[in-house]
Simulated scan of single mutants.
Amino acid sequence: MRTTSQWDIVCTVDDLVPESGIAVWTPEGPVAIFYIPHRLPALFAISHTDPFSGANVLARGITGDLKGEPVVASPLYKQHFNLVTGQCLEDDSVKVRTYRVLLDGKAVRLEVSKAKTLVEAA
């Protein structure tokens, strides 16, 4: 079975905060979008849900760089998640979902399943 996808607009570049994240709501669940303008690519998207607590908080984490890789530290228990792969650096058995995200003019687009449509941006 093939899964098809589409690129939904979830926010605009004006909604983004440099070196930080914002949360958007999709039919697939909450997603954290991070804007790190000094990196290429500058946009990253991962699940907003912290797998250790179950709370939707990852967009509020502190971004940084560990061993040359962009990361976010969970604001609750401080685990670091690689923004490219979703891998938890402190626990190899834990990974958050990553999403493809791109800037289209001023629109930020997120790849979601085609059967689902954008509900709202948070």
Rank of each mutant, 00 (worst) to 15 (best):
L43D: 12
S93M: 11
W25F: 02
A107L: 08
E90P: 02
V119C: 07
P75R: 15
H48Y: 10
P41D: 05
C11M: 03
T12D: 01
L40E: 14
A42W: 12
I33W: 08
P51D: 13
A55L: 14
T4G: 10
Y77C: 00
L66N: 03
V57P: 06
V112M: 15
V101W: 12
D65S: 13
S47D: 03
R39P: 00
L16C: 07
I9P: 01
K116D: 07
R109H: 11
G61V: 03
G86R: 15
E28I: 04
R60K: 15
E111C: 14
V71I: 04
T4L: 12
G29V: 05
A55W: 11
D14P: 00
P37S: 05
V96Q: 02
Y77L: 05
G64A: 01
I46L: 14
E111D: 12
F81G: 02
T49N: 10
A107R: 11
N82I: 06
T26W: 13
P75A: 15
G64R: 02
I62Y: 06
V57W: 09
G54F: 06
E111S: 15
G29S: 06
C11D: 01
I22K: 15
V10N: 02
T26A: 14
A55D: 12
K114I: 08
Y77M: 06
K67R: 09
L40N: 11
P37K: 10
D14N: 03
S74N: 04
L76W: 11
S74M: 02
Y35R: 01
E28V: 02
M1G: 12
A59L: 11
A42Y: 14
I33A: 06
A23Y: 10
A59Q: 13
C88I: 09
K116L: 10
P37A: 08
E111G: 11
L89Q: 07
M1P: 10
I9N: 04
W7Q: 04
K78M: 09
S5R: 11
F44E: 09
A122N: 13
E28T: 05
D91M: 10
N56H: 10
L66I: 06
A107S: 09
L16E: 08
A115L: 07
R39K: 04
